[in-house]
Structures are given as structure tokens and as C-alpha cells.
């Protein structure tokens, strides 16, 4: 994307009419260099993303099995997909898991960052502890969570052995509660990195703001909430996007903790896609599911592009 910025500069220069003559002479060569430099990147982006996505979408309209084929069968794969209990449950799960873990991650991440911002002793140690879950594979942490929530050898059994016979804590054992177990593990996994990003955002806020707020007698919590938070837009967006991408492709955590069970109660869209294009040798069905996963993201991108385009149009008219 770097080649766009200089072009914009040139445009500004041209509009203001003070372009230096020697810069003009250098430009064709510089442009060539820029084009040469970015060609591999553009080729990869187009080849890997655009073409592959187009193929995925196309195959979702075919009856491809192990080998992709071009037998067009219309919307049959989508009809089957949306008539399938497991897919519906997967979609509900991803929304529930996504909204819950996103909310808790952002709130706790910010609170932890504020806590770390109090010039506490051993900040490095705490930061490492909070970041540690993110550094480990979800398969490993998922397995440990599964053991902890196992009714026969986890927390429940331990507490019962201590004397509380009626103690119940085995969310993964029942279909209605298993998703909460996943959310818990998801938060534990993601909150540290959110904190790290938020902390960087907090530290990036000008110290003068704090001084000014103090002079005006604004309590610290209000400063954090109403002054500093809005100034950290960059950090918040980064944390949000990082969490969102992690959530939409959640796979290994579920595989390690529940394998989509009990029954099919914790199935996720990504598992559906992967299982259909691999063991169930039904590429067409898998691609239909993958296309549906892409759909909300495509809408988000389109909305963003639309907003940007409108903003630019307004700028021009002014």
C-alpha cells in the first residue's frame, strides 16, 4: 500500500502548483521502482486471496467431492447447509461465543491495563503472567481447561473431596452449559494480549492531558473513562480486530476442549468447514459453509469502504 501515499503527495503538490521541476524528472524512474517493488505483493494478494476466494465461492455452487469439479447445481449446497441442525447451532454458537468473549476481553483487558498503569511494583512480572496464555497453543491450554472442568478429575471432584459433597462445576459435561466453559477459556486466552495493547495505548496518551485533568479536579476514574479511552481509538480498534479474527476462526480451542460436544452443542463454523473438505470428502458443502463465513466480513468491509468513499466525496466537495 506504500505506493499510494507518495501519489497522494504528488497530487497535493500538483494542486498547489509548486511542484519542483527536478522532482518531476525523477518521477518516472521512481514510479517504475515502486511498481517493481510491489508487484510480488500485489500478485500474491490477488493470487492467494482474490482468486482462491473466487474458486471457493464457485465450488460452493458445485457438487465437488474430494476433487473439485464444475458441475453446477445451483443453491443446493446452501439449502442443505441451512437445513442442517449442526450448522444452525454452529452459527448461534459463534455469535454467542463471539459477543461474550469480545465483551469480556475488552472490558477486563482495559481494567487490567488501568491496573498495570498504576505504577505497580513488578509490572514486568505481571505483564508476563497476563500475556502468557496468549503465547501458548490453544490445544495445550484447551486440554488443561478440559481436565480442570472434567467432572471426575477436575475442580468439581477436588472440591467434593474436600468435603463439599454438593459442589457442581462441570460445564463441559452438559450440552446447555458447555459453551460457557469455552467462553471462560477464550477469555483467559485473550485477555492478556488485549491488556498489552490497551496498556500501550494508555502509555501513548500525552502526560499533559493527565496534568490538565488533575488541575481541573477530575477524578482519575472519569479521566480514564471519558478522556483517555476515546483518545485510544487506535489501540481499541487493533485489539478489536485481533479478537474478531481469533473468534471467527476458533477451532483448536473447541477441538481440544469439547470436540464440538456434548452431542453437537459446541460446534463451530470453522470445524464444519474443515470436516467437510477433509474427512467427509464433500468440498462443495465445505465451500458453501466457508462462503457463509466470509459473508459477514465482506459486508463489514463493504460498509467501511462505502463510508470512506462518502467521507472522501464530502471532502472533495468542500
Amino acid at each position: 500500500m506504500a505506493h499510494i501515499a507518495p501519489a497522494k503527495d504528488d497530487l497535493a503538490v500538483a494542486v498547489s502548483g509548486v511542484a519542483a521541476p527536478d522532482r518531476d524528472r525523477r518521477r518516472p524512474f521512481a514510479k517504475l521502482q515502486a511498481v517493481l517493488g510491489t508487484t510480488p505483493m500485489i500478485a500474491t494478494a490477488v493470487g492467494v486471496f482474490v482468486i482462491c476466494i473466487l474458486f471457493s465461492v464457485w465450488w460452493s455452487f458445485t457438487n465437488s467431492k474430494l476433487f473439485p469439479n464444475n458441475n453446477f447445481i445451483g443453491l443446493a449446497q446452501y439449502n442443505r447447509l441451512w437445513a442442517n441442525d449442526r450448522w444452525i447451532i454452529s452459527v448461534n454458537n459463534i455469535w454467542f461465543f463471539g459477543i461474550m468473549s469480545m465483551t469480556f476481553n475488552m472490558v477486563f483487558g482495559y481494567l487490567l491495563a488501568v491496573f498495570m498503569d498504576q505504577r505497580i511494583k513488578q509490572e514486568d512480572l505481571f505483564r508476563s503472567i497476563f500475556l502468557y496464555p496468549f503465547a501458548m497453543s490453544s490445544i495445550v491450554t484447551g486440554l488443561v481447561w478440559q481436565w480442570m472442568m472434567d467432572p471426575n478429575l477436575g475442580i468439581q471432584e477436588t472440591v467434593r473431596n474436600l468435603g463439599w459433597e454438593g459442589f457442581n462445576f462441570a460445564p463441559l459435561a452438559r450440552g446447555e452449559t458447555a459453551i460457557y466453559g469455552l467462553v471462560l477459556a477464550g477469555i483467559w486466552n485473550g485477555v492478556g494480549v488485549t491488556m498489552a495493547i490497551m496498556l500501550a495505548g494508555l502509555r501513548g496518551v500525552d502526560a499533559e492531558i493527565w496534568k490538565a485533568a488533575k488541575v481541573d479536579g477530575i477524578p482519575a476514574w472519569r479521566t480514564y473513562l471519558f478522556i483517555v479511552l476515546p483518545m485510544m481509538k487506535g489501540a481499541i480498534v487493533t485489539a478489536f480486530i485481533l479478537q474478531a479474527t481469533g473468534i471467527i476462526r476458533v477451532f483448536d480451542l473447541v477441538i481440544a476442549m469439547t470436540q464440538g460436544g456434548p452431542g453437537i452443542s459446541t460446534q463451530m463454523p470453522a470445524i464444519y468447514v474443515i470436516q467437510h473438505i477433509t474427512d467427509r470428502v464433500n468440498v462443495g458443502q465445505g465451500m458453501a459453509a466457508a462462503t457463509m463465513m466470509l459473508f459477514p466480513i465482506a459486508i463489514l468491509i463493504a460498509v467501511r469502504a462505502l463510508l470512506e468513499w462518502r467521507a472522501r466525496a464530502r471532502e472533495k466537495s468542500v
Binding site: 478440559q146 472434567d150 467432572p151 462441570a170 459435561a173 452438559r174 460436544g261 456434548p262
Partner: peptide, 9 residues
Amino acid sequence: QWSDEGSAG
């Protein structure tokens, strides 16, 4: 109904 609650997974 004769299985145990630890059977999940």
C-alpha cells in the same frame, strides 16, 4: 440414562 456424566468427549 445409565451412562455417567463424565462421558463427554
